[in-house]
């Protein structure tokens, strides 16, 4: 008996997005990173071509975070007063493919750092490492519209990935990216329609769809992960099927979500039976990330070095035969 061939072919590959620019390309990076380009669902290499494997960005802040648990603190407290050193440690010691600089210090409800300080942080990271850079605002849309223009100019020509644009706030950032040649993260609140709508809005004012990475929000394992998973999977299938406004690479922001849930941080003494949190925390992050890889994520943003290491092994095992 013959086993039927269930291979599926898709008409529309996902866009390729290249982050970072080398000297020849007008930037200062030692390498660039290209994501996307896949013509099939994740890791189904027998069905279609996936020219680029998923990459991991490690998260760096523009000030020493007060709310990171001890399990992260022990790796980063020696460097986290300087985003440059912090980034360098991530690249040199923990093999981060990219750095994600989150400008959390600019949040008006927190440190309320100025746009000049934000620009300074970007400059520090660019000087300290040569990998491509993600620059992520503080999440307050008025403030982001103040700080990101400065950051964008500081990094002009570096082809950074900037974020985020939303349905309510996209015009400033789109203009910046067109001027300074960056790429954009389009954020939506776990909604398959809004994810697409943000892309259409940005495209309407002239952003090339090839400059967009979709961030459909992220939930930690145990906190709605299946909901996000299904949105990502449906969106990816739509993109592969020909929907140009879903044919973008996907991003998952793992560390931020995982390291605030009690399953990842609470010590064993408090919850006997959950096991040692020193192992549990990174494992929670790695497994959450793994699920997002299977959902189709092309960039994963993470925090814990051990989790990064685990995930890298996993990606390697799936993308390299033999």
């Amino acid at each position: 008996m013959n086993i039927p061939d269930v291979k599926q072919s898709w008409p529309n590959p996902i866009n390729e997005v290249t982050i970072g620019a080398t000297k020849e390309e007008g930037g200062t990076r030692s390498n660039t990173i290209t994501i996307g380009g896949t013509g099939t669902l994740p890791f189904l290499s027998f069905e279609g071509r996936s020219p680029h494997h998923p990459v991991i960005a490690m998260e760096v802040w523009d000030f020493a975070p007060a709310d990171w648990p001890e399990e992260l603190e022990k790796y980063f407290s020696d460097v986290w007063d300087d985003p440059g050193k912090w980034a360098k440690k991530c690249v040199d010691e923990f093999n981060a493919d990219l750095i994600c600089l989150r400008l959390q210090g600019c949040d008006p409800d927190g440190e309320n750092k100025s746009s000049d300080e934000a620009g300074e942080a970007v400059k520090r990271v660019l000087e300290s490492v040569t990998v491509p850079l993600i620059i992520w605002g503080c999440g307050n849309k008025e403030k982001d519209n103040e700080i990101l223009p400065v950051c964008s100019q500081t990094a002009a020509g570096e082809k950074c990935l900037l974020g985020t644009i939303t349905e309510d706030n996209y015009k400033t950032l789109v203009a910046l990216c067109k001027a300074d040649k960056h790429k954009l993260i389009a954020e939506s609140p776990v909604d398959i329609n809004i994810a697409k709508q943000v892309n259409i809005l940005a495209a309407d004012i002239g952003l090339a769809p090839e400059d967009i990475v979709i961030y459909p929000s992220t939930g930690s394992l145990g906190y709605g992960i299946e909901y996000v998973y299904s949105i990502m999977e449906r969106g990816r299938i739509a993109g592969l099927s020909g929907d140009k406004m879903w044919a973008m690479p996907l991003l998952a922001d793992i560390g931020k979500e995982v390291w605030k849930v009690k399953e990842a941080v609470v010590a064993e003494e408090e919850v006997p039976g959950w096991g040692n949190h020193v192992q549990r925390g990174p494992l929670w992050e790695a497994i959450t990330a793994l699920v997002y890889l299977q959902a189709g994520s092309d960039i994963i943003i993470m925090r814990h070095p051990k989790a990064v290491e685990e995930l890298k092994k996993y990606i390697h095992s799936l993308t390299n035969k033999n």
Partner: peptide, 13 residues
């Protein structure tokens, strides 16, 4: 609900 969200755009998502 999904159809509704999809239609909440001009002219449509």
């Amino acid at each position: 609900m999904n159809e509704f969200m999809s239609a909440k755009f001009l002219p449509h998502t």
